[in-house]
Design a protein around this nucleic acid. Sequence first.
DNA 1: CATGGTGAGTTGCTCCAAGCAACCCAGTGT
DNA 2: ACACTGGGTTGCTTGGAGCAACTCACCATG
Lengths: 150, 150
Amino acid sequence: MLRREYDLNCSIARTLELIGERWTLLVIRDVLMGNRRFEGIQRSLGVARNVLSNRLQRLVDEGILERRAYQDHPARYEYLLTEKGLDLWPVLVAMIGWGDKYLAGPEGPPVLILHKECGGRVNDRRICERCGAQLEVRDAYAVPGPGAKA
Amino acid sequence: MLRREYDLNCSIARTLELIGERWTLLVIRDVLMGNRRFEGIQRSLGVARNVLSNRLQRLVDEGILERRAYQDHPARYEYLLTEKGLDLWPVLVAMIGWGDKYLAGPEGPPVLILHKECGGRVNDRRICERCGAQLEVRDAYAVPGPGAKA
DNA sequence: CATGGTGAGTTGCTCCAAGCAACCCAGTGT
DNA sequence: ACACTGGGTTGCTTGGAGCAACTCACCATG
C-alpha cells in the first residue's frame, strides 16, 4: 500500500503531502501564470488527462484551488488559486531561483519575475532588486526571460 | 513509459526533475539537519531501503550530495550537502513557512529556525525577525518548536 | 568460536499510480 | 449532417514504491 502521507511531524513533510505529488506544483504554476482551464493546462504540461483530473480535484479538496464556472450552456470551468494557494508563491520563487542558478542554459532564465510598480527583478527572497521592497504575489508578474523558447 | 523529465522550458519543472520525486526533499532535509547516514535517514523517514538507495545515488550523481567514507574497516559512508545542495535551503524554508501556516496543529510549528548570531526567528524570506539580517544557510540552525513531538 | 548486532546496501515480489488511448456529453460552427 | 471544443471518465498497461529477506564486512559477547 502506497501511503499517501509521510506521517512525520514536520512541516516540510506535511506540505509535500499536499503539493509533493508529480505534476501538482506545475499545475499550480500554470494557474498562477493565468493558465486556468483543464484543456490549457493539459496541453501546456502534457500530463495525462486522468492524472490532471485527480490533481485538480485534490487541490480543490484541499482548498488550494477553487473551481468556478466561467460560462453556462455549455458549462465550462476554470480553476483559481485561493489565498492558501497563492501563499505557495514563495515555494515557486525559491525553486525558480535554484533552477535558474543551476539548470538554466547559457542563455539565462526562461522566465523573469518583475516588480509591477518599478519593473525591477524579484529575487528568491521576493525582494525587488531595484527598489528593495518586500513583495507579495500580487506585486509581481512574470515575463519571458532570455532563455525562453520560441 | 514514465518520463522522468517533464520536458518543459521552465526552471520549476527542471528543479522538480531533480528534487521532485517522493522522499527526495525529505532526504535533503535530514542531511541538512545533520542526519547524514543511510541507517539514520532510513529510520527517521521510514522510507523503503531500495528507494532510499536510489534517491541517494541520484542526488550524488546530480552533485547535490557528496558520499564520503567516515571510516574504513569496515567502510562506512555519510552524505554531505554540496554547495548546490545547500542552495536548496530557500526551498525548504519556503515550504516550512507554508506548512507552519496551514498545516501545523494548534501547538504551533514543530521546528523553529533561528539566527545563530542573535537567536531571532528566521522567516520565510530568510530574514531574521529580530535583527533584520538577510541570512544564508550557515547563519541559521533549527530547534524543536512548540509543536514538536515527544 | 558461534552467535548476534550494526552499517550500508541489494534482490525479489507485489501492487498502486502514472501514462496512454479511446470514449462520452453538451453545445457551437459550417 | 458533420466535425470541433471543453471538460472530463473509463479501461488497459507498465514503471516505480513498499516490504521483506538477504548479503557482506566487521565488532562484541558468552
